[in-house]
């Protein structure tokens, strides 16, 4: 098993740090899956439905890394799965940001007292001297027999799919609602209405976004013909987790999609050219 990757472009390093920070906020423990063409961050802790992951992030290796060598467990299973405390990786990477940014960042799998992801950064220091920093972040290798737990989840049978409003705006609204209730109801229909609402014994409050686009799926016409396009489909989910997902706005996604499986699940996507993040939020009553 070997892995060694090197990033030499500053925007890519920053973006990579950004992705790790975002994912780390959503899940403390995380599995990194290293494959030939992609790098995945997968989280499975509490809240996923039927053993499928709650969080699935895919990074296109070629975009981030200038050098990338890996050798999996066996030639047939040419992948590596390892588990780590992502907040540790995140804090470590952030220290690179502090020091005026890294010029190059090398990530490799090493054997110290324990398996580690070793980060070697070449920092741009103020002086003429380059500064090299080495961080060893301990990881645990995941044996082949457990890989299936981290398989990509299947697409859910949703009633509505909608492009979410600007996340920054939505996030402000949801953050204010957070002080009022532990749960939020998220609803959408086929004509581009997106509603978030909370209620408690003192107040009912709902915010309506309208005129949003709905992504075209192959079977959408078939579905919409059989149902009322104006009907709102909703799921009530944990507001803190939903708010965490919205922090993903920091990835500057080109689009954010919300699929609603009525009463059961929100399947959320943040899509960028090189990064895709999927987040599964089961309805609160189902947990």
């Amino acid at each position: 098993m070997r892995f060694r990757g090197k990033m030499t472009e500053s925007p890519c390093i920053k973006q990579f740090i950004n992705v790790v920070n975002t994912v780390a906020r959503m899940s403390k423990t995380c599995v990194i899956r290293i494959a030939k063409n992609n790098l995945f961050f997968i989280a499975n802790e509490g809240g996923g439905i039927a053993k499928s992951p709650m969080l699935w992030t895919q990074l296109e290796q070629g975009h981030f890394f200038n050098e990338f060598q890996m050798e999996g467990v066996t030639p047939e299973n040419n992948e590596i799965f390892l588990e780590l405390q992502l907040d540790k990786l995140s804090r470590t990477l952030n220290s690179l940001k502090l020091a005026q940014g890294a010029r190059t960042l090398k990530i490799k799998l090493t054997k110290r007292h324990t398996p580690c992801l070793t980060l070697e950064a070449e920092l741009t220091s103020g002086s003429i001297h380059d500064r090299f920093v080495v961080h060893d972040v301990p990881v645990q290798l995941i044996p082949r027999r457990q890989w299936h737990i981290y398989d990509e989840p299947a697409m859910s049978q949703f009633q509505t799919s909608i492009l979410m409003p600007p996340l920054r705006h939505l996030r402000t609204v949801v953050d204010h609602m957070k002080s009022l209730s532990a749960h939020i109801s998220v609803a959408a229909n086929e004509i581009g209405t997106f509603v978030v609402s909370v209620s408690n014994d003192k107040v009912d409050i709902a915010t309506y976004f309208r005129g949003l686009l709905t992504p075209k799926f192959v079977d959408s016409q078939e579905r919409s013909s059989t149902s009322n396009r104006e009907e709102l489909h909703s799921a009530t989910v944990d507001i803190k987790k939903f708010a965490l997902f919205l922090q993903g706005e920091q990835l500057n996604p080109t689009k954010a999609i919300c699929n609603v499986v009525s009463g059961r699940l929100l399947h959320l996507f943040l899509v960028n050219d090189d990064v895709t993040l999927q987040y599964y939020l089961p309805a609160s009553s189902y947990v």
């Binding site: 409003p165 705006h169 609204v173 014994d201 107040v203 409050i205 709902a206 915010t207 309506y208 309208r210």
Partner: peptide
């Protein structure tokens, strides 16, 4: 900006 919030406070 076209977004509407509707509240009912007891």
């Amino acid at each position: 900006g076209g977004v509407i919030t509707d509240c009912k406070i007891r």
